[in-house]
Simulated assay, not measured.
Amino acid sequence: MPRINSPLKPFETDAYHNGKFIKVTDADVKGKWGVFFFYPADFTFVCPTELEDMADNYAEFQKLGVEIYSVSTDKHFTHKAWHDTSPAIGKIKYVMLADPTGEIARNFDVMIEEAGMADRGTFLIDPEGKIQYIEVTAGGVGRSATELLDKVRAAQYVASHPGEVCPAKWKEGEATLSPSLDLVGKI
C-alpha cells in the first residue's frame, strides 16, 4: 500500500474528458493538487452515486485548484458510453481515466486481481506529486465528496502553514494548533 508522502508512480493512459478522448500521464498531474478516485466498474450500483456526488461538488474542488481523476479498469470507450447514457454520469466534467490493464490501480495497490477491478480508493496528491491523504473502503461502502473537500482543505492549509496542524473535525476558518511543549497534556 502506498504511504503518505510516497511519490506518484509513472503512468500513461487514455481518458474520457468533456466529450473527447485524451491521453493523461503522471506529468499532467504534477504541479497542482489532484484526487485519484478509484471505483470498481462503470454501469454498477454504488459507483454512480459516488461519481455523481463528485460531479455535484466538482466546482468546489476546482475553486481549491484540485483536479479530479476518476479511475476504473474500464476502457475510455466504456466511460463515454456510460457518460452518454446515464443522467448521473452525464454530469461529470472531470477526467475519467481508463485503466484496462490495471497498471494505475496496481501503482496505488488497490487492484483486486481475482476480480480484475479496483477497490474504492481515494488518494490526494500534492503539487509535488506526493500522496497526502489515503482512504480505501469496502466495495459496498460509498464515499462522500463533502468529507473529501474537508480533507483537501486541511491538507492545503497544513501545506501552506508550516508549524500548524488541523485538529479533528476542523473546518476552514476554524482554529488550528501549533504543536509545542506547552500543549503536551493540555488538549
Rank of each mutant, 00 (worst) to 15 (best):
G31S: 14
W33M: 08
G34E: 06
V35G: 01
P40S: 05
P40C: 11
D42S: 07
D42F: 02
D42R: 10
T44A: 07
T44H: 04
F45Q: 05
V46K: 00
C47D: 04
C47Y: 01
C47H: 07
P48L: 02
T49S: 07
E50G: 06
E50T: 01
L51F: 00
L51C: 02
M54C: 00
A55S: 13
A55Y: 00
N57Y: 03
Y58A: 14
Y58H: 13
Y58T: 12
A59F: 09
A59E: 15
A59T: 13
E60Q: 14
F61K: 09
Q62T: 10
Q62M: 04
K63V: 06
L64W: 07
L64N: 12
G65L: 09
V66P: 00
V66L: 09
E67N: 15
I68R: 03
S70C: 13
S70F: 06
S70Q: 02
V71I: 15
T73N: 14
T73L: 13
T73E: 04
D74I: 13
K75S: 15
K75D: 14
K75C: 10
K75A: 14
H76S: 14
H76L: 02
H76V: 11
H76P: 01
F77T: 15
F77K: 11
T78F: 00
A81L: 12
W82M: 06
D84L: 10
S86L: 04
S86M: 04
P87Q: 12
I89P: 00
I89H: 01
K91E: 08
I92M: 12
I92K: 00
K93Y: 08
Y94M: 10
Y94P: 01
V95W: 01
M96G: 04
M96C: 13
L97A: 11
A98F: 06
P100Y: 11
P100V: 14
T101P: 03
G102F: 04
G102T: 12
E103Y: 01
E103W: 03
I104A: 09
A105N: 10
F108N: 03
F108Q: 04
D109H: 14
V110W: 05
V110S: 00
M111E: 09
M111K: 08
E114W: 11
E114G: 10
A115V: 01
M117K: 08
D119P: 00
D119A: 15
D119E: 14
R120N: 06
R120G: 05
T122N: 05
F123H: 08
I125M: 09
I125F: 02
D126S: 09
E128L: 11
G129M: 01
I131T: 13
Q132E: 12
Q132C: 06
I134G: 00
I134T: 10
E135K: 13
E135W: 10
E135D: 12
E135S: 13
V136L: 01
T137F: 00
V141R: 07
V141E: 05
V141I: 15
V141Q: 09
G142C: 01
G142P: 05
R143I: 03
R143D: 01
R143V: 04
R143S: 05
R143E: 04
S144K: 05
A145H: 08
T146Y: 04
T146L: 07
E147I: 05
E147F: 02
K151W: 03
V152M: 07
V152I: 15
